[in-house]
Computed example of a mutant assay.
Amino acid sequence: MATQEFLGNDCLMLPRVIPTLLLRGTGLVKTTQFKDPKYVGDPINAIRIFNDKEVDELILLDITRSGEGAGPAFEVIRDAASECFMPLAYGGGISSLHDIEKILSIGVEKVVLNTAAVANMSLISEAARTFGSQAIVVSIDARKKLLGGYEVVGNRGQKRTGMDPVSFARACDEAGAGEIMLTSVERDGTLQGYDHDLISRVSKGLKVPLIASGGAKDLPDMVSAIRNSGASAVAAGAFFVFQGKHRAVLISYPSPSDLRKAFV
């Protein structure tokens, strides 16, 4: 849901600003360009901090499950969902309707499909029909091609698919996805700003919300992704867990007044 700010008798809906946490085993990490994971803490502690900061929603992605061919770590998901006061989306190792049903049944509001969506587009349609589009997010990871343009990649950026992210996003939209989460592999963890060209290309023609991810630099960068590039919401990882040029681990989130000043 979008942040609500009440000004007099008016209710102003601010765009969603969503922290993304990467789970590796039982700990949280942050990657740079999908490589070199750095340990950043315990997931439950991070969730409690974000609870206190009243964030819009939270995305939790297990980056090891798909690569290992393992299913979701349901106990870890259950622990996270039980602590999370805001809407929670989970992705990682999901490959079937049974996986989705079990994840939603333990308190997660949305599931995030990535590798499974690339391998089996029909899973999107079946999941949307069964659980409703609002519960299905398709995560698209895109990398620049040497001769220009972009390509969808799978398995945390390790597998080339040959698919164009614009066409793939539209196909996921038509298949029944409730949201598209778009991540630039090159920008991931760099704090150098979103890939606004990529966001603009993919956002055009979509009927469903687009969550921009990968490289968030500051609040003006987030505002630009929404106002100028066509995203409906923004997600970030390093921006919320690192502080200063030495990237010291410090979980943070903009205050409601800072968000209001940035987006109003």
Rank of each mutant, 00 (worst) to 15 (best):
G148W: 01
I180F: 04
V55I: 15
A142Q: 03
L22P: 00
G8W: 01
D99C: 09
S232F: 00
C11M: 06
A127S: 14
R187L: 09
T190I: 05
R201N: 07
A119M: 03
A135I: 07
L146D: 12
P256I: 07
K245I: 01
I106W: 07
G205L: 13
S229F: 10
G189R: 10
L259V: 11
Q192N: 14
V112N: 14
A80M: 15
G215S: 14
I44M: 08
Y39E: 07
D56H: 02
G8L: 02
D197P: 00
F85Q: 14
D173V: 02
M121I: 10
S125W: 03
A116D: 04
A235Q: 05
I136L: 10
N120V: 01
L206N: 01
L61I: 13
L182S: 08
T3E: 10
E179C: 02
P37H: 06
R156Q: 15
G41N: 14
I251M: 12
A70M: 13
T31H: 00
G178R: 07
L61T: 05
R78C: 01
M163T: 04
G149Q: 05
P37A: 09
L113C: 08
E151A: 08
A177T: 00
G193I: 13
A116H: 02
S125Y: 10
A81I: 05
D195M: 12
I94H: 04
I59D: 15
M1L: 03
D173R: 04
M181P: 01
Q4R: 06
D188F: 13
G244T: 03
